[in-house]
Design a protein around this nucleic acid. Sequence first.
DNA 1: CAGCAGACTAAACGCTCGTTCAGCCTCCTG
DNA 2: CAGGAGGCTGAACGAGCGTTTAGTCTGCTG
Lengths: 228, 228
Amino acid sequence: MRSMPDDRTTRAVIRDEALRLFAAHGHDGVTIRQIATAAGVSPGLVVHHFRSKDNLRQEVDQHVLAVFEGLLGELTTDGGTAGLPGPGPTAASSISETFLRHLPVGSPLPAYLRMLLLSDTDAGRGLFRRLYVMSCQLLDGLADAGAASRGRDPGVRAALLLVNDLSVFLLRDQLTAVLGVDPLSAAGLARLGPELLSIYAGGLNAEPPTPEPSRPEPPAPEAEGGQA
Amino acid sequence: MRSMPDDRTTRAVIRDEALRLFAAHGHDGVTIRQIATAAGVSPGLVVHHFRSKDNLRQEVDQHVLAVFEGLLGELTTDGGTAGLPGPGPTAASSISETFLRHLPVGSPLPAYLRMLLLSDTDAGRGLFRRLYVMSCQLLDGLADAGAASRGRDPGVRAALLLVNDLSVFLLRDQLTAVLGVDPLSAAGLARLGPELLSIYAGGLNAEPPTPEPSRPEPPAPEAEGGQA
DNA sequence: CAGCAGACTAAACGCTCGTTCAGCCTCCTG
DNA sequence: CAGGAGGCTGAACGAGCGTTTAGTCTGCTG
């Protein structure tokens, strides 16, 4: 090893490149040879460090879930609604948003978690269950604080709040193409947040505070459409 | 051809089996040999009828989208909110629900559309754009009827309503595992619908009409209990 | 200095993939 | 009845896959 540009071991480099590629193309869409090339090593070395491709997949899964849990720990010790000056319901819509704010911008972690959630694996089901429990606790907290009602069926309401939050996450690219702005970027959140907040605060019939009676515009959603 | 159990041509049988398998496992998760076996023919015949696997994929895509458009035509001529006696906002939450009611129960079409939406292909992007335009028109109609407000940013509000509707669709299996009932079955809709309607009608703070102040239930969603 | 352990590579194995090819059988037509 | 067209099969090809193996290099240790 003549020159090591970073302080990660070769094993960690392979793991990180596998993470990045898995996140982008899914577990089955990536070959050991691609991972090896991305990490700058030979395919044999990947198998030398991790016993097999399936074992590498499991190890990356565990690593991602561990980082995720660690991040969750930070967020709860910080205080769930810290940093947001708005009223209660904000927290309900910020599970993924708060999560993203604590990650480097180019991190492959969100995409990996998205892939896991959609992957029909035990890891994905466990992750969703984890998020569901969190959503239940969050709704319970909001209800105790008087910021929200538990509704007729609290378990269902918590599930709805969760999947609605995740939908922006899962359809991020599609929304970007249609709205002209990444919904999870700062600019996107500035546009999406108030609208979602308005619905959660007063339902679909509540009137918008700012007097701008512009119509919805079905056509011309193309890139960077500078609409209202 | 000694005995043909149905009136479809062999070509149509291959196409339908490809549709079913693609819907379940994605385009890259299915081999020509699997499709051939499912259709009861040899792999060579699949290539004989469709020039290549990629061409078969495109043809199945087109077929699915054509059926989808046909169904959309039926729904709009039937009248958008027909069959639903509830108030206005019902229609906003029933794009996928109304859609599903017009399909045979075991139809692979929903799963195929889900896969397309998540597939990062031109077909998927076109489908989402189509749904977005529909959502914009639907919000516009609701607003004209006084059933909903266009909000501060109608384009964003329409997008949010769409992705929230789609989220139940995309996470159907995960919700089934957690709630113990398929959210898109009749029983599931009976549980989910009122809750969503309540949020859309009055926001998160509106009190439920039935006096059942039970707590949200984080534990015991279905089979085996929660982890760390 | 001898030798062992571990990081690492290059080559090759067996397998499955999409695709091709030669040929059979069964109609339909002249 | 001759003959061509098309549905259809089984075998085979080349490429790429995950994995195995043999062997090289390097640094540590006795």
